[in-house]
Nucleic acid binder design. Structure first.
Length: 278
DNA sequence: CGTATCCTGACC
DNA sequence: GGTCAGGATACG
């Protein structure tokens, strides 16, 4: 489920429940969570107070009164469910925060890949994260700097959270469709115009998803949800030109694009790139 | 760089 | 039974 927009909506839910509340207990229900958070750490959360919940990229950071930070990452299928004291746990409950007002916040995660990580006071766990995709600090010029070190394809680069935080497989596909850039285009072949289009495409795809809560993909997305233009639309007509959408695997991820309106750049963008040719 | 891996469920 | 999945990381 979660890319930046879905995490943003989930974070709003969690914020409402958690902020200002004392954690009575954190119950860890799935053993995989213990790889990052041992039982002692989980127990140490009892009595701590959630001062604030901040989202950075796809990470949710719970700032605790003790000065520590509890990082929550949903990975592939995590989500929050809020229930009262009597409510039944959802079928894929993996962890439960019991709060001092009697309510509970449940980490619901079918694939059990989500992580909870406790960071000591004063540590800076997200220092390598790039600018938030929704932030004004994410600019074509900044993207150019990040991509200058890369020779590989643009789409895997957009999925690298050090380049830009919050872009996942769905919105990387969508953004490149808006930008009319082929996902396999080598980074060195992208000129300034293409980078501007990619940044604008990312913003546009995310803005569209952030405009309305709810899933954009999967069983819970209604057919009326036409928020996605290429992802999951293999064989269906491109909404711009009618050409059948193609699916290819790139860097191990399903990659959807229009083979007609997303072409690879034909030549290097700057003379410097070609300087070594005679 | 691509590939395997974590884990479970949905779908063919 | 096999394949695929919205993420990230360890590894060759």
């Amino acid at each position: 489920m979660p890319e930046l927009p879905e995490v943003e909506f989930a974070a709003r839910t969690a914020r409402e429940l958690l902020e200002g509340r004392t954690i009575v207990a954190l119950h860890v229900l799935h053993p995989a969570l213990r790889r990052a958070l041992d039982d002692g750490e989980a127990a140490s959360l009892a009595g701590d107070v959630v001062i604030a919940l901040a989202r950075r990229g796809k990470h949710q950071m719970l700032q605790l009164a003790s000065g520590r930070t509890l990082e929550v990452h949903f990975r592939m299928s995590g989500d929050w469910r809020a229930i009262g004291g009597e409510g039944e746990l959802p079928p894929h409950a993996r962890a439960v925060f019991a709060l001092d007002d009697g309510r509970r916040l449940v980490l619901d995660d079918p694939r059990a890949l989500a992580t909870l990580t406790l960071h000591a006071a004063g540590s800076d766990p997200l220092s390598s994260l790039g600018p938030d995709a929704t932030d004004a600090a994410f600019t074509p010029a900044g993207l150019a700097v990040q991509l200058a070190k890369r020779r590989g394809a643009i789409k895997p680069a957009l999925l690298d959270q050090r380049v830009v935080a919050g872009v996942g497989n769905i919105y990387a596909c969508e953004a490149l469709w808006y930008a009319r850039v082929h996902p396999a285009t080598p980074c060195p072949r992208l000129d300034a115009r293409a980078l501007r289009a990619i940044v604008a495409g990312i913003r546009r795809a995310l803005r569209r998803a952030l405009a309305r809560p709810g899933r954009v993909y999967g069983a819970e997305a209604t057919p009326a949800d036409r928020r996605l233009n290429v992802y999951g639309r293999e064989g269906r007509p491109c909404r711009r030109c009618g050409t059948a959408i193609t699916r290819e695997v790139l860097a191990g991820r399903g990659t959807y694009f229009c083979p007609a309106c997303q072409r690879r750049a034909r030549r290097a963008p700057t003379p410097a790139r070609r300087a070594r040719h005679p």
